[in-house]
Write a protein that binds this DNA or RNA. Structure first.
Length: 164
DNA sequence: ATTTACAATATGA
DNA sequence: TCATATTGTAAAT
């Protein structure tokens, strides 16, 4: 867990996101906020430059409801093994498809851990690129979303998913 | 048709 | 020990 951070902004039609990088890759992504409080940094150099380009591109695709061609390396090492398993599962859900918390739980061999999956989704450091918004509660109910439910609905709507 | 209770689960305060 | 982005079963209203 090399947590040393570099924060870079990503302007999009939906606002300015903030990407956070460790020496291993992208380790965090934040939704646009009223006050950008990132420390000014010069233009990224070395691998950062490439990673940031990939992140920017991937984020824009995802916001448009399309599957990103390539993702930057993700540093999910901050999560527990359970959380990392969950996040890895989420990466397999294509745009336009959704799973329930319990299906995700079943996918990692713990069919009864639906609630814990909810916790892991809430702890997802890289929303959107790790598509936690494609996990719904049972019966097509929306469940929750740390970045605000409106984001979940908006993202799913762009992928063609209808919520009840 | 709704509401209420509870067990099972991983994690953090 | 309590609360949480849950679920399934069961019982009572």
């Amino acid at each position: 867990m090399d947590r040393a951070l570099l924060e870079l902004e990503i302007p999009t039609p939906d606002g300015v996101f903030v990407a956070r990088y460790s020496t291993q890759g992208l380790c965090g992504l934040e939704f646009p906020q009223a006050h950008s409080r990132i420390k000014a940094a010069g233009p990224p150099r070395g691998p950062l430059r490439r990673w940031h380009r990939l992140t920017t591109q991937a984020l824009k695709s995802a916001l448009a409801g399309k599957k990103p061609r390539r993702l930057p390396p993700l540093d999910l090492s901050a999560g527990t093994p359970f959380q990392q398993q969950v996040w890895r599962q989420l990466g397999n859900i294509p745009p336009g498809r959704t799973l329930s918390y319990s299906q995700v739980a079943g996918g990692i061999g713990r069919p009864k851990a639906a609630r814990a999956v909810g916790g892991a989704c809430g702890a997802n450091p890289v929303p959107i690129l790790v598509p936690c918004h494609r996990v719904l509660a049972a019966g097509g109910r929306p469940g929750g979303f740390s970045g605000g439910l409106h984001w979940k609905r908006r993202l799913l709507a762009r992928e063609g998913v209808r919520l009840v």
